[in-house]
């Protein structure tokens, strides 16, 4: 049982389908529940259906079938109430390039029916919070890429939604900014906001999100909490840096060892086996290991396995 199990549903998707005009079936009946207060990751390769799902939830894409409800409000029948609860941070910059930063936020608040004086207060609050207050009178096109990303987050928050959906929010931003955005998102989640994140940085999902769904070819292939998902990873691959060069990979009983170059080995370690055995056997054979690291992020490894398993025949052939 997680702490969120009793919380009301922030987003509920049932049998959602989308077929585009050209006949492309982007979503083949996905169902998903995200509870209030969760930090949820939606992962999937390019073209898997993540952006289509977010597009439907944010009313930018017309669904073909299925139901979406936000905090119990059906997106079709109670569109206004449902949309009030959602804040969207899209993948691409989508503000007017000629408008001033401050005006963009005040206007967005106005679209939600927030009167100008209150809209100005909130715009100032979020621009200060995201370090953009000094740029309030600049046309948005004059901002750097990182500032534009922060502007989109400020804009999504100006009507104070309970559910924040971010589509690849840290794509193309430097490490420092990414870390500060993570901190800000954690702070928002701590204040009770439900956050749904799509990302290509699996480290991001693993660090921030407690629950995760993986979507591939328009279907949910995994939907669970992060801990359970990572437990499914039966084998981890480690890279060992040796003190001295070797001519061939040493034999280590019970483990698969591959030589990558003359001082680097790659060792697959099943979850059931202790990593100590690897070091014992290598030490006995006279090998000295200087350092060790994961070959890939654990989630990345699992993601690749899940997505590979789901590849269509022609793609995997």
């Amino acid at each position: 049982m997680t702490e969120h199990n009793a919380a009301p549903m922030a987003l509920s998707i049932r049998d959602l389908r989308k077929t585009y005009g050209g006949g492309t079936e982007a979503l083949k009946g996905i169902s998903l529940d995200v509870r209030q207060g969760e930090f949820f990751a939606l992962l999937g390769p390019n073209g898997a259906g993540k952006s289509t799902t977010i597009g439907i939830v944010s009313s930018l894409v017309n669904k073909s079938d299925g139901q979406v409800s936000v905090f119990g409000h059906d997106l079709e029948r109670e569109r206004g109430l449902a949309k009030k609860h959602i804040g969207i941070v899209p993948q691409e910059f989508n503000f007017n390039q000629f408008e001033k930063v401050f005006d963009i936020l005040v206007t967005q608040a106005g679209f939600y029916g927030i009167p100008a004086p209150r809209a100005r207060e909130r715009a100032e609050h979020y621009l200060r919070k995201l370090g953009l207050w000094e740029k309030r009178d600049s046309p948005s096109r004059m901002l750097s890429g990182g500032m534009k990303r922060r502007l989109m987050i400020a804009r999504a928050l100006v009507h104070e939604p309970q559910l924040l959906i971010l589509d690849e929010p840290t794509a193309g931003v430097d490490i420092e900014l990414r870390r500060s955005m993570w901190d800000f998102l954690i702070e928002l989640n701590g204040q009770g906001k439900t956050i749904i994140l799509t990302t290509h940085y699996l480290e991001e999902a693993e660090s921030l999100c407690k629950r995760i769904a993986i979507i591939d070819h328009g279907r949910i292939v995994e939907n669970t909490d992060m801990k359970s998902l990572l437990e499914k990873l039966h084998v981890e691959t480690f890279i060992l840096d040796l003190a001295r060069p070797v001519t061939k990979a040493p034999a280590v009983e019970g483990f698969s060892v591959v030589q990558r170059d003359e001082t680097t080995l790659e060792v697959e370690v099943p979850k059931s086996e202790a990593l100590n055995d690897v070091f014992s056997q290598l030490t006995e054979q006279g090998y000295e290991v200087l350092s060790m690291r994961n070959k890939a992020n654990r989630l990345e490894e699992l993601f690749m396995r899940l997505v590979d398993r789901n590849l269509p025949e022609e793609a995997s052939a």
């Binding site: 944010s58 009313s59 930018l60 569109r79 206004g80 109430l81 949309k83 009030k84 959602i86 969207i88 899209p90 691409e92 910059f93 989508n94 503000f95 007017n96 390039q97 206007t107 967005q108 679209f111 939600y112 029916g113 804009r155 009507h159």
Partner: peptide
Amino acid sequence: FGTKFQHSIEEMLVSPMS
């Protein structure tokens, strides 16, 4: 058309405005 071209129309479409 400008709002369509710049995708800033999405600001309105995601809002509860009819």
